[in-house]
Structures are given as C-alpha cells and as structure tokens.
Design a protein around this nucleic acid. Structure first.
Length: 231
DNA sequence: TATTGATCATGC
DNA sequence: GCATGATCAATA
C-alpha cells in the first residue's frame, strides 16, 4: 500500500518520504530485506562487508551510486548504516571520506569534504551482536542527524589538527590515536596501493591512501541524543 | 575488550 | 585506480 514498501523505489522526493521509508524498515531482518529486494545473502563474513549498506540504499531509493554526492542528492542527505549491539553500543567506527593529501592543506573546515559529507546523515542502526548471522540481524529505527554546534566544534578541532599535520608534511606521524571524534586511518584495497605526498622537507614520498573516520564513541553519543529526542 | 591498521566487494 | 559500501582481525 505505502510507497515505503516498494521493492526498488525511485529516489524520495522529500525528507518526510525518506524518513517514512526508513521507519518502514525498522524491525525487519536483513534477510527479510534481501528477500524483498529479490537478492540473496550468500558469501562468508569476509565477503559481506558493505552488503547491508548497499541493501538499505536500494530499499530507500538512494541514487548517487559511487559519485562524490550524498546518497540522496536532491535532499542533501547521506545514508549510513551503523552496527549496534543489544545494549545500544556502536560496534565500529564510521568511514567518512578519503583524503586528498595534496589538496587538504589548501582547504578549510567550512568547505571540507568531511563537513559536506556530515552535513545531514540518516543513521540506520543494524543489530551486530557477536556471531549473529547476517540474515538474522534486525534493522532499527533510523535517525536524521544534523550536527550541533558542540559536535561541529569537536569535529572541526580534530580536522584542523590533522590537516595541520598533513600541511607540514607530517602524514607519516599521524596515527589513528589522534583526534577525539575524527581520526585518520588507512583506506585502501591493500598495502600495495600508494599515493605521492610531500614530506617534511617538501620532498616527494609514497604512502598509503588515508581516510577520515568517526570514532565509535562519537557516533554512539550522537545516536543516544537523537534517540532520546525522539522518545 | 577496545582500538588500530588492513582488507573485502562492487562499479566505472 | 579510485570512488562507493564498510568490517575484519591482530594487537595494545
């Protein structure tokens, strides 16, 4: 009956339509979602990274594909599935974006890729306890997030610190330990992937590609806040 | 057990 | 290769 239950819906026209679709997924298992989308869930744990995110994208009508655009371009909303356990703890960090190590020093927080990506995020929690099979995991209630001033201040401070290190050729000194909410970690298919960057003396050197990630405790705290606000 | 560093799948 | 989607698994 409702558009929220269509198998492969067109992009949502409004924020309300998107939220309606997302709420309609709440309570379904990943297996049920896959069945509705007429797809199978085969493959071991090593072969299913990202599978849930792709299924939820389809179910909600995300249209950006692998373009550098929000998942719902006309709404300016990014979609993230987020693994949570039965206690409401976030189980993993969240990938935000890759980093253009050459260009980063010339960009500012306000126009940064991180801020753009995180301007509006629809978080869809998915149960991820222990050995629970992929198909048995239950989808939770979605929440639309726009960062508070406080959250933005935290992210901005981390971003500036990290971007500052990169600007002076210090990429190799950056480990994932840095940053309270936002961190930098490797992001590549494997260790053979290398990019060229400027070292401390301005010399060229090769290093692995990096990405920005949100720490689990940051995501957890914002989800708890949104969850409180919605009752 | 939480976290970091490394990796897996797909599309163009 | 590089973007999208993330989680795996060794280690601290």
């Amino acid at each position: 009956m409702s558009a929220a239950l269509l198998r492969d819906p067109p992009p949502p026209k409004t924020r309300e339509e998107l939220l309606d679709r997302a709420q309609a997924l709440s309570g379904l298992t990943v297996g049920q979602l896959a069945a509705r989308l007429r797809t199978s869930l085969d493959g071991g744990p090593l072969r299913t990274k990202g599978r849930i995110g792709e299924l939820v994208e389809r179910a909600l009508g995300a249209s950006a594909g692998n373009l550098d655009q929000p998942d719902f371009p006309q709404l300016g909303i990014e979609l993230k599935t987020i693994p949570m356990d039965e206690l409401g703890r976030v189980r993993e960090s969240t990938f935000v974006s890759t980093i253009d190590l050459q260009a980063l020093p010339n960009t500012e927080w306000a126009s940064s890729r991180v801020r753009r990506k995180l301007a509006r995020v629809l978080w869809v929690p998915v149960q991820a306890a222990g050995e629970l099979a992929l198909g048995q995991r239950q989808i939770g209630r979605a929440h639309l997030w726009e960062m508070t001033d406080e959250e933005e201040a935290l992210l901005k401070a981390d971003w500036q610190q990290l971007a500052g290190r990169i600007a002076v050729g210090g990429i190799e000194e950056i480990s994932a330990h840095l940053g309270e909410a936002l961190q930098i970690r490797p992001k590549a298919a494997n260790a053979s992937v290398q990019v060229e960057v400027h070292g401390p003396e301005g010399e060229f050197l090769k290093t692995g590609p990096r990405g920005f990630y949100l720490r689990a405790r940051f995501t957890e705290s914002l989800l708890w806040r949104l969850s409180d606000e919605s009752g």
